[in-house]
């Protein structure tokens, strides 16, 4: 079995982002970048399946600017076998990413595709579902537990009401929640080894996918800031304030 994993390079989740003064976007110069957190879970799951002997190859794919390669390199350092970097500049919308991944999948023919459930920059939560639509494959979104059963996959999904279990035939798309597993850290020797693993590069154009955004970004603004509150000195004071001042209890 061959597993493909889509990884996105985003601003690190610990960074307090800043909006550009002209409202054209977010400041990214000199800002720490990392792999989108649930994509680490996606890689981890794929590598675990390979280690258990159920998969033979894990391929990490990213779409993005030159530096997005780092994200693939990191995936290689935690156990992916090879990488693919599709170069594209600027914002690439989930639909365009899905179309690019579709082309890669038609070529690579994986049995399983792991992705994150949501990119923490655009917060779109779309790409996996779009990709499965384009391929007419089953989709198992928001996965927190996966079990491979022959040519099928049993997946526990996190939904608003609690948990849902579904069974999908392979090939399938799985989008991962952070609770799916505990991503490992890359060891130094493995980081060194990863430098020798191959990363194939091509452009979105080579694949014939137009990445021009369909949704125009008109402006980006800071959210309204909350007015600073007060510290109360006791529980009794808190309850009194909630009752008489805020009038919420």
């Amino acid at each position: 079995m061959k597993i493909l994993v889509a990884v996105k390079r985003v601003i690190d989740y610990n960074v307090q982002i800043r909006v550009k003064e002209d409202g054209s976007g977010i400041v990214t110069d000199n800002v720490k970048m990392s792999t989108n957190p649930p994509d680490d879970n996606a890689i981890e799951e794929a590598v675990k399946i390979k280690e258990s002997g159920k998969a033979t190859e894990v391929v990490a794919v990213t779409v993005g600017e030159e530096k997005a390669q780092e994200t693939v390199r990191k995936a290689l350092a935690v156990g992916a076998d090879r990488g693919i970097h599709i170069k594209a500049e600027g914002i690439v919308e989930p639909l365009a990413v899905a179309k690019i991944l579709q082309k890669i999948i038609e070529k690579e023919k994986p049995d399983l595709v792991f992705m994150g459930k949501q990119a923490i920059d655009d917060d779109c939560n779309q790409t996996g579902q779009m990709l499965s639509a384009l391929l007419n494959w089953p989709q198992a979104t928001f996965a927190s537990k996966i079990e491979i059963k022959d040519k099928k996959l049993e997946v526990i999904r996190e939904i608003d009401e609690g948990l849902e279990t579904i069974e999908v035939n392979l090939p399938a798309i799985v989008t991962c929640d952070l609770r799916l597993n505990e991503p490992r850290y890359a060891s130094l020797p493995n980081i060194m080894k990863a430098k020798k693993k191959p990363i194939e590069q091509m452009s979105a154009l080579d694949l014939g996918v137009d990445t021009t955004p369909r949704v125009q970004l008109i402006k980006v603004e800071e959210p309204p800031t909350r007015k600073a509150g007060i510290k109360v000195s006791s529980v009794a004071e808190l309850v009194q304030k909630l009752k008489n001042e805020a009038k919420v209890i």
């Binding site: 639909l95 779109c124 779309q126 779009m130 384009l134 996190e158 939904i159 369909r214």
Partner: peptide
Amino acid sequence: ANTFGKNLMPRIAALLDTSQVSD
């Protein structure tokens, strides 16, 4: 944009070749 809509809408959007606006 809860788990129901998040799961479903992108599948529709892709089939319609539309770039979805989320949330």
